[in-house]
């Protein structure tokens, strides 16, 4: 198939960006979306132009590096997948595809389609851990039974890949699905209880400091999340937050 691509080009974080049109021809429906981008880039390099910079790494939907806003949707028109798992059979000959970076004040553009997600790192550093030493003198793994239900729910929350699609999809650029997932994982496990109050307070404070917006229960984040993280996690974070405020440490 032959396609027209409208792609955001921006030299660096200080430069002014713009949409630029490109044509790619003979694209196979079996290609992944990023392989189509590879074809475009090979074409650009061969004609002496700079290729389009975009983040990607594992290309199997787990590293969370890829981050394209395609035709107005995070990770494009399919559900339950990342951009690297999107295939060209979702498009048809003659289509025009708009490709933008994640748009959020807390995710400044580094170059072209690559954004800076360090805000996520700082939120994790504010409390996304259990303060246990890593030197191997912990108690036996089976000394503390955890209900299968809680473990499975914690796993569902822990499946977050930190891609940022939730922020990009949200009209408020809220990071509450991302933060809620981490808070939930530990809130559901006994190991996370000791620091639960500090954790939620510190992570939420950092989230606000980074300039992410608040949640207004639209639910776009849940729809676009490639890993099926549910809104329940936001509710649980809110409960944890209220609890921490009422009870203190």
């Amino acid at each position: 198939m032959n396609l027209t691509l409208k792609i955001w080009r921006q030299k660096d974080s200080n430069a002014k960006g713009q949409m630029v049109d490109y044509k790619v021809n003979d694209i196979s429906e079996h290609m992944s979306f990023l392989e189509m981008m590879d074809v475009l880039n090979e074409q650009l390099v061969n004609s002496g132009e700079e290729p389009v910079a975009f983040d990607h790494d594992c290309r199997e939907g787990i590293c969370g590096m890829c981050s394209l806003y395609i035709n107005g949707e995070a990770h494009g028109p399919d559900r339950g997948i990342t951009t690297c798992q999107l295939h060209m059979r979702m498009f048809k000959d003659g289509d025009t595809i708009t490709i933008e970076p994640w748009r959020a004040a807390a995710f400044p553009v580094i170059k072209d389609l690559i954004v800076d997600r360090m805000a996520f790192e700082r939120i994790q550093q504010a409390g996304g851990y259990i303060s246990v030493n890593t030197s191997g003198n912990t108690q036996d793994a089976n000394s503390l039974p955890i209900s299968k239900h809680a473990a499975d729910e914690a796993m569902d929350a822990a499946a977050c890949i930190g891609c940022g699609a939730c922020v990009a999809s949200c009209k408020n650029s809220s990071a509450m699905l991302f933060v809620g997932a981490k808070v939930s994982q530990y809130a559901l496990l006994p190991q996370g209880q000791v620091e639960a109050a500090d954790r939620v307070m510190n992570m939420v404070a950092q989230m606000d400091l980074e300039g992410f917006g608040n949640c207004t229960n639209t639910g776009a984040c849940e729809v676009e999340c490639p890993k099926g993280i549910t809104l329940e996690n936001i509710a649980r974070m809110n409960r944890e937050f209220v609890k921490a405020n009422v009870k203190g440490n």
Binding site: Y129, I130, V132, T134, G136, T138, Q139, D140, A141, N142, L144, P145, I146, S147, K148, A151, D152, A154, M155, A158, Q185, Y186, L189, Q191, G192
Partner: peptide
Amino acid sequence: EVSGNIIDQCVAQGVPFARDYGGLL
């Protein structure tokens, strides 16, 4: 020899390994 320690360590960190209905790994 150290393989068992790894599991202890990871559980203490909150790694959600699969469990059976009795709550054990």
